[in-house]
Amino acid sequence: MAAENNVSEQAGIPQLEFSSFPNQILWLVVFLLAIFIVVRMIALPRIGQIVSQREKRIKTDLEDARKLNEKIEGLENSIEETLAEAKRFSEGKAAETRNEILEMQNKALEEAEVTVKAEVAEAEKRIEAIQDEALTNIRAIANEAAVEIVNQIVPKRGILDEISGVVDAKVQGKASE
């Protein structure tokens, strides 16, 4: 302890002990050069390589991502175009089909109308024939009934013909009304 104190007393400010300077400078130069060699030859090239490779990788990845993004945008545009085209096609097809159906409907209606008119005309003809036939029968029945009535009341031949003529005239008159 005493020896240590002696050293301390002798020490003063060790930083100003010029006799130690050559020793310090020698070892500083030696170890500073060693650190420089480690830094210059090993560490910096290695770290520089790691950093530049990473930057290159990031750049490549970003470029790939940008290209893929562009590709996706192109595909999206293509899909939209296809969809728009399909929509246009389906709308055209729907309109065409609607027109065809309308035409067919109109045609069927016209045909039906013609058929109905023809059938109505035929039915009217048949009704007219039946009416004529009915009128003819009525005249004969009325004539016979009148003759019979007159025969029962007046048995004279000449009057009968006259009556028959009057009845015919009346029946014809009624028919023409």
């Binding site: 301390s8 060790p14 130690s20 050559p22 020793n23 310090q24 070892w27 030696v30």
Partner: peptide, 24 residues
């Protein structure tokens, strides 16, 4: 200031310019 004393680490001799000191 004792902690700043420069002493040889190897051997007991005086500090010379090539001594392997505590700073070395």
């Amino acid at each position: 200031m004792d902690q700043f004393l420069i002493k040889p680490v190897l051997g007991d001799g005086p500090l010379v310019w090539y001594s392997f000191s505590n700073t070395a």
